[in-house]
């Protein structure tokens, strides 16, 4: 993959944009797909280490191509370390949606993996603040679900804090069952709607 450093800079930029689009598309698809299983979390794209700059992932203006040396790739970019530069171009690439079983708010292994990636991204983007919204399926009463959503959001928050994210950077909210992201009134839809979703505040 060091070959990419030899390619003309504009090609690299296009590649980066393409990869970002792919990452966004991949993320969008997870929202409507069936819930992830407990298989190993997807490994990051292999060429991200080279493509990521040391700064945040702001879009690069196409009319203003700049040339800069890449930072040395780290061999220790395993999930959960969180220190140093993030390996994710965006929060959504790190994963912004974790799912919960019926009537539960404890974190699954899959949810912990996604939150670990979120923490890594947040460590690398230290000015960013996030909102975690807890959501529930429609198979509960309104006020209880507001409480359950609050517990889901706070379970995610507590885990991020345990990984070193400052509490002041995290806000939580519960939407209960009021803001489903999947319209289906069936077990597949309910599974998607039992979630905690992370969005950027600033």
């Amino acid at each position: 993959m060091t070959k990419s450093a030899l390619i003309k800079p504009w090609v690299g930029s296009v590649a980066l944009i393409l990869m970002s689009s792919l990452a966004l598309a991949a993320c969008a698809s997870t929202k409507t797909a069936t819930p992830p299983t407990n298989s190993t979390p997807p490994t990051p794209l292999a060429n991200n280490g080279e493509a990521t700059t040391t700064e945040s992932a702001t879009p690069i203006p196409q009319t203003n191509v700049q040339r800069a040396p890449l930072t040395p790739p780290s061999g220790q970019l395993g999930a959960g370390k969180g220190a140093g530069s993030s390996i994710y171009a965006s929060l959504s690439e790190a994963g912004d949606l974790i799912l919960f079983p019926t009537d539960r708010f404890d974190l699954t292994d899959e949810a912990r993996a996604i939150l670990t990636r979120q923490a890594a991204w947040l460590q690398a983007n230290s000015t960013k603040r996030i909102l975690i919204a807890g959501n529930c399926d429609e198979r509960g009463t309104r006020e209880y679900n507001l409480g359950l959503g609050a517990r889901r959001a706070n379970a995610a928050r507590d885990f991020l804090i345990s990984l070193g994210v400052a509490p002041s950077r995290i806000e939580t909210v519960s939407y209960g069952k009021e803001r489903p992201i999947d319209e289906r009134s069936n077990p597949d839809g309910w599974a998607i709607n039992r979630n905690a979703q992370t969005t950027l505040l600033d």
Partner: peptide, 25 residues
Amino acid sequence: SMAFAPRFTPDGQSIVFSADRDGDV
């Protein structure tokens, strides 16, 4: 950020409700 499920007390002078303090409702 979360205060919900409000009801007046019968005398109309107070409100009982739920609030979330760091996940504790």
